[in-house]
Design a protein around this nucleic acid. Structure first.
Lengths: 178, 178
DNA sequence: AGCAAGTGTTTTACTTGTAAAGCATGCGGG
DNA sequence: CCCGCATGCTTTACAAGTAAAACACTTGCT
C-alpha cells in the first residue's frame, strides 16, 4: 500500500504503526499522531502487565495485590484502608476485598484504632514482608531485561518524557490536590 | 530528603517519582531505574483509559467495545470472531460476549460463512459505522489536548522510543509470528 | 464411506472489579 | 445532651473478563 515502507532500518515494526496506517487510509483527514503515543502506551502496558504477572503468579499474587503489599512495604509503616486506596489508586471496595484475602493468607494484619473505632490500621506480617522482598528483585531483574533493547540514553529520555506526560496527566486528570 | 530536589524547573513531580524514592530508601541496593519507565507507562495507561473512557461512555461504549468496532472500521471489511480476537488482543470468549451485546444494540451484524459453517463473518451496520466515525474525532481531539503539554519534538521522540520498546515487547512476548 | 483429529466459536463456572447503599462511629451546633 | 451530618469502611448487586470444557463442523486418512 505505502510507497515508503522501507526495510528493517533498525526500528522494528510494531502493531500500533500498522493500526495507525489503517486508520489513516480510512480517514486521511484525521490527525492520528496522538495514537502513536497513546496507543503505544496502552499496548505496552497491556503486554508488560501480562508479562510481569508471571513472576507474581509464581508467588500466587495478582498485580493489584502486590501493589497493596508494596505500598505497605515502601512506606515502612501501617496504613489505613483509605490510605491504601490512595496509594494503590483503587476503589475502597476493592481494597476491602484484597485485605480480606491477604489477611486470610497471613500476609497482612489489621488492628483497630484506639481513638477512632471506625478506622483500621493494616501492616505487613513477617511473611508478607519477606514475600515482597523476595519478589521485588525478580521483578526488577525482569524489567531490566525487558528494557535492555533500548540504548541507555534512550531509557533516560523515555523516563523523562513519560515523567513529563504523567505530571501533565496527574495535574489535569487527578485534579490538583489542594 | 534529597539534596538535589530543586525547584519547579519545568518538570512537575509525578507520583511514580515519589514511589521510586520510597523504594530506594527501603532497598538502597536495588536498581529501581526500570520503575521509572515501566511504572510510568502503567500509570499513564491507567489515567488515560480512565479519561478516554469519558468520550466513549457518552456513546454508551466501553473501550474494549470501541476497539472491536474500530477494528472493523479500520480494516474496512468483515472479520471473523477469531480475527477480531487477534486485532483486539482479547480472548475469544470476551469477543463472543461483546459481539452478542453489540449485535443486540444493532451496531454489528453477523452472517455465516457459506463454505465453512463454523465460521461467522461480522461487519458494522450503518449505525455502527456512524458511531465510530462520530466518536473517533472526539477522541483524537481529546488525546491531542492531553499531549499538548509536550513539546512537538518531545512528542516525536516519545512516539519513537515507545515504538522501539513496543517492537521489543511484541517480538519478545508476543513471540515471533512465523 | 466413516472415523479420528483439528479448528472456529460458544458456554460454563468462577474471579475480580465497581457503584451505590448500608453501618458504625465521630463531631459540632443548638 | 442529642440530633444531623460527615467520615471510614464494608456489603450488595451486578458487570465483565478468563480458563477450560463443550459444541459444531471440517478435513484427511484408510
Amino acid at each position: 500500500m505505502t510507497a515508503t515502507n522501507g526495510g528493517p532500518t533498525g526500528t522494528r515494526q510494531d502493531t500500533v504503526a500498522a493500526v495507525v496506517r489503517q486508520w489513516q487510509s480510512v480517514h486521511p483527514d484525521l490527525d492520528t499522531a496522538p495514537m502513536e503515543i497513546i496507543g503505544r502506551i496502552n499496548r505496552c502496558a497491556a503486554l508488560l502487565q501480562q508479562a510481569e504477572d508471571a513472576p507474581l503468579r509464581r508467588a500466587g499474587l495478582s498485580r493489584p495485590e502486590f501493589d497493596l503489599l508494596g505500598a505497605l512495604r515502601r512506606t515502612g509503616h501501617e496504613l489505613t484502608p483509605s490510605e491504601l486506596t490512595r496509594e494503590t489508586f483503587s476503589s475502597g471496595a476493592a481494597v476491602t476485598k484484597r485485605l480480606k484475602q491477604l489477611t486470610e493468607r497471613g500476609l497482612v494484619e489489621r488492628r483497630g484504632d484506639t481513638r477512632d473505632r471506625r478506622v483500621a490500621h493494616v501492616r505487613l506480617t513477617d511473611a508478607g514482608r519477606d514475600l515482597v522482598d523476595g519478589i521485588l528483585p525478580e521483578q526488577l531483574a525482569y524489567e531490566t531485561t525487558v528494557l535492555s533493547g533500548l540504548a541507555p540514553q534512550g531509557k533516560d529520555e523515555l523516563a523523562t518524557l513519560l515523567g513529563e506526560l504523567l505530571g501533565e496527566l496527574e495535574g489535569r486528570l487527578g485534579a490538583p490536590r489542594g
